[in-house]
Write a protein that binds this DNA or RNA. Structure first.
Length: 427
RNA sequence: GGGGAGUUUCCCGAGCGGUCAAAGGGGUCAGACUGUAAAUCUGAUGGCAUUGCCUUCGCAGGUUCGAAUCCUGCACUCCCCA
């Protein structure tokens, strides 16, 4: 495999800061080194923002080393102040336990195909038994306050009105101790993370030197932001999650599909495992024929497969085809319901379509919420914005009849380009 | 406490006795164009109804054949003088 993890990071724009490059290269020149990244279980799912760290760990594996994913079962009880402008709310222990379990599943799933031994550890396992006094004597004693106060994460918060609590202030000690502990237990001497983690990482490196006279290394990668300055993975309706219950594979796929050209190019380089040659080819295609959107297409495919597997990708692509004007007639009931799962639906009695007059389209549009009133529904139809099973309907008096049922009891209604609703007919 | 201005349809904002469901802009929704983008252009935008009816202009009354427009009272907002 690729001999130099460090150069790989560099070439893909994943390198923000690192400790001494020469020493790092040297350490990583021996295969089988362990490299860790931490994940705090702040929610019951990771989101796109965590994807970078996961991908970094996959690259660690690809380079012939062993990734270590650290779950913050203990640190999650405190809350990392880094990159935060306000004090966090504490999670209950039940919530935390559920989050840890869910996040661990996701991490294992994404790293399953990494092609190397993967270690998943939870810092609660070694923090739980540590007493406060012992921690102060063994760890706190070796961390100068001047150093802690010098960290950006602390400084920026102290300058604000809210300040930060002693609890959050102590967070970096826990993370520093994690690093030292992992170097003891797994001989893991490299920590990677987002650029906001630099302060916490260096705290660990410092502690390793004082406590063990051991040389530890750190690498951070740039945080993902879009060209308009907003955070990657944020949409108007919230974060893009890895959990299919929170963000369906279709919407996950669409998120990447809709990125700006430059952002997509950047993500391709940083998040996918395509070779640099392939990426260069896509860059070129974007220059020549931007409208083909091959970059977005490829990016969406790669990442959806990584997170949701082949089945998830297939579902997303099928849904995409349908949502962008594809034929609905050929699809069976189960597939339809699956594709339109996140679309609003309304139940009608089967009798509504079966009698002579049928069910007026105007009524169906209103009942499903596609139109606020019958008048508006009528207007939409008159203006050519109404579709039944993706076929445009222009007669205001149109009524749904048994012939219109796609599948056995479902009609797909649509207003305009993107608003869909499902009318279900049940006996 | 005194004086003045105001309250309009989702928002801003015209209207000051009939031709007002109410100008104009924004937003929103559709259509065209397009790269599932941006910009632009077009149409629509109270409700119900296949040319008509019903409900809206702070609230409650009144004048009038007829009121968002006039009068009275009430509520709220803003400005000026004390």
């Amino acid at each position: 495999m690729n001999a130099s993890l460090f150069d790989d990071f560099h070439d893909r724009g994943l390198l923000h800061q690192s400790t001494d490059a020469q020493r790092l290269r040297e350490w990583l020149s021996t295969p089988g080194r362990r490299v860790y990244a931490g994940f705090d279980p702040t929610a019951d799912s990771l989101h796109v923002g965590h994807l970078v760290a996961l991908v970094l760990l996959r690259r660690v594996a690809a380079a012939g080393h062993e990734p270590v994913a650290l779950l913050g079962g203990a640190t999650g009880m405190i809350g990392d102040p880094s990159g935060r402008s306000e004090e966090r709310n504490l999670l209950s222990t039940d919530e935390l336990a559920a989050n840890v379990a869910a996040v661990e599943r996701q991490i294992r799933s994404v790293l399953a195909t990494a092609g190397s031994t993967v270690h998943v550890v939870n810092n609660a396992d070694w923090m739980r038994g540590v007493g406060y006094l012992a921690f102060l004597r063994d760890v706190g004693k070796h961390v100068p306050l001047s150093q802690m106060l010098g960290k950006d994460s602390v400084k920026s918060r102290l300058e604000r009105d809210g300040g930060l609590s002693y609890t959050e202030f102590s967070y970096m000690l826990l993370q520093a101790w994690d690093f030292v502990h992992l170097s003891d237990a797994l001989d893991c001497r490299v920590q990677i993370g987002g650029s906001d983690q630099w302060g916490n990482i260096t705290a660990g490196i410092e502690l390793g030197r004082r406590l063990r006279s051991r040389e530890l290394h750190g690498i951070t990668c740039p945080l993902l932001t879009k060209s308009d300055g907003t955070k990657m993975g944020k949409t108007a309706s919230g974060a893009v999650w890895l959990d299919p219950q929170r963000t369906s594979p279709y919407r996950f796929f669409q998120y990447w599909m809709n990125l700006e050209d430059d952002d997509a190019g950047l993500c391709l380089r940083r998040l996918t495992e395509l070779s640099l040659d392939e990426i260069a080819a896509l860059d070129a295609s974007r220059q020549e024929n931007a409208s083909a959107r091959q970059t977005q297409q490829r990016l969406a495919e790669e990442l959806t497969r990584l997170v949701h597997g082949d089945a998830g990708l297939a579902a997303a692509q099928q849904a995409t085809a349908v949502f962008f004007g594809g034929d609905i007639e050929g699809l069976d009931e189960a597939t339809l319901v699956e594709i339109f799962a996140e679309v609003p639906s309304h139940d009608f009695p089967l009798g509504a379509v079966e009698h002579d007059e049928g069910l007026p389209l105007v009524e169906a549009l209103q009942a499903t919420g596609l139109a606020a009133s019958r008048s508006q529904a009528r207007r939409t139809i008159e203006q050519g914005g109404a579709y039944v099973n993706n076929r445009r309907i222009r007669e205001p008096a149109y009524a749904l009849r048994p012939d219109d049922l796609a599948g056995r009891q479902v009609v797909v209604l649509r207003s305009g380009k993107k608003s869909y609703a499902l009318a279900r007919f049940t006996a």
